[in-house]
Design a protein around this nucleic acid. Structure first.
Lengths: 300, 300
DNA sequence: AAAATGTTTTTTCCCGATAAAAGACATTAC
DNA sequence: GTAATGTCTTTTATCGGGAAAAAACATTTT
């Protein structure tokens, strides 16, 4: 069992969801583009759809025979890539406590525990190391630096530098730039969410990421853009774990975002700077307040 | 042949160089610390030294019998780690030209060409990706973004932000801090090098890295400190390739460093800012001027 | 002839296995 | 009894192999 076919299963499920909308499917290359997979995978999907009586497939004609049923879908857990599985497992251990700074990370143990090969774990750790939470000892183990107060402060320091600069670059963008339309769209979505905050407050984090990524992209600097991956990862897992006051927090953040968006649209650098600082300050407070004081890094 | 014993060979060579200095060797754990390897490796080294008649080894007593000869050393090329070998090969291809932006990178081909397994190449590419020169297409190949003018500009933009901030943090460090002694030592070495610049100009880059890393460390921010790895890598390979005007460039840089060091020692933030900006500006100019105009990134 | 489908080749992803190196435990020397 | 040496165990680094997925090539359809 050298490689799971999760790409196929995931694409199959996504393809099933497109099925009822139209009475026949497009060409193989077109489906490939739509699903983001190769034609080889598309053909596997079509084969199975034919076998299970979902479609009638004969060369160019791919007629939908029936609507997909619950049992046609592959189970969700079989559609995750190994990298996602490892990341989730690892982050759970990291945030579930008991993960003290200075602790050693054992590749073999991790691999056995998750039930995967060591190669995948190694590759994950190398990729993960750029987030600054772990560090490699040459020819030896990895060391956990821990999700500490110091980490949060260092992260937010960079974030603030980068976002202030990106926001300044944003307002300098010409009126014709597509970003203004993107910003308008985000503003509308923010207003909608603000109106239904009671029921949809958990949809905020996705909106949050989209707005900040849009702004960061204005820097036209790959290091700034890439750094948002660190922030996004931390927010993703951290807030998944820490749900305290989530609704209220998000309500405040939405209002800050709206003020921030208004400032950007005014194209007044001073206003942008102020709105940006205000939002980042409260974001930092939120992050810091959720880190238990006790969990400190050990002196090196 | 699953793992080369380069750690042993490299440590063996380094141990040989320590041999003639004293007439007997310290304990195994001590040697391990000195050489940065485990006791297992130390014992392999001692075994071989005994076999080749270099020492007489009996438990605690390790008497040196003769001075090491040329043929006692392992060949230099056998002491490199696989990661180093792959990095060198890859960078040679990258800088040797013919590496246009947008080009695909083939793991298998690279592995075959260098004569290593695919796993090592994959791990190298993942590690290397944080430098912003390559990018992964999910489930597919890597794409070379190229060492372009845009890359150099993005890199220097961040470098300038980080270094200005670090330098500001540096002057705020208390007088008792060990960094001031480090700085004094660096100043002396700069003056020595300046005096013998005609013959030793190629030793500058090592000094350059030490000074900048010292300053960056004052930020106490892991992201800033780690970012210097990107700069160091670029400088290392780029200047290795581009030797034009090296001596003159380094002469100028040493003077800028001395002015920078003086500014830091004055603890006057305004002076530091000015000296730092001046040096970074000329460093950027040097980097930019060495990038051929023609080598531009393809539009995505 | 452009674009689809059919077929074959190549590459990526991942595992298990193995030697090198690290680390842990047991024993001896001072 | 502390710190070394001697021995055994575990972990890391790396390879080759094999299935999944992508990509390339050949053939057909419109």
């Amino acid at each position: 069992m050298s490689k799971s076919n999760n790409v196929y299963k995931d694409a199959f499920n996504r393809c099933l969801r497109m099925l009822d909308e139209s009475r026949s499917l497009p060409s193989e290359p077109e489906l490939g583009t739509l699903l983001g997979v190769s034609r080889t995978t598309v053909r596997s999907i079509l084969s199975r759809m034919e076998e299970t009586g979902l479609i009638d497939w004969n060369k160019r004609s791919k007629t939908v025979l029936r609507a997909p049923r619950e049992e046609d879908f592959f189970p969700e857990e079989e559609t995750d890539s190994l990298a996602e599985i490892i990341e989730r497992s690892f982050m759970r251990r990291l945030l579930a406590g008991g993960a003290e700074a200075g602790m050693q990370i054992n590749e073999l143990e991790l691999a056995r525990e998750i039930g995967v090969g060591t190669t995948s774990v190694r590759e994950f750790l190398i990729r993960f190391s750029r987030f600054g939470l772990i560090e490699k000892r040459r020819n030896s183990h990895w060391v956990l630096k821990g999700f500490t107060r110091a980490f949060a402060l260092e992260l937010t320091e960079i974030r603030e530098m980068f976002e202030l600069r990106s926001a300044a670059a944003f307002v300098a963008l010409p009126q014709e730039s597509a970003v203004w339309a993107d910003l308008d769209r985000l503003e509308v979505e923010h207003r909608q969410l603000a109106g239904e905050i009671a029921t949809r407050f958990n949809e905020f984090s996705e909106l949050d990421e989209r707005l900040h990524r849009l702004i960061h992209r204005a820097s036209h600097n790959r290091f700034i853009v890439d750094f948002y991956d660190v922030i996004a990862m931390i927010f993703h897992y951290h807030y998944q774990w820490n749900k305290a006051e989530e609704r209220q927090r998000n309500e405040v953040a939405i209002q800050e975002h709206l003020a921030y968006i208004a400032a950007l649209k005014s194209r007044d650098p001073a206003k942008v700077d102020a709105a940006c600082r205000k939002h980042l300050k409260s974001a930092r407070q939120t992050l810091l307040s959720s880190i238990p004081e006790g969990r400190q890094a050990q002196p090196a």
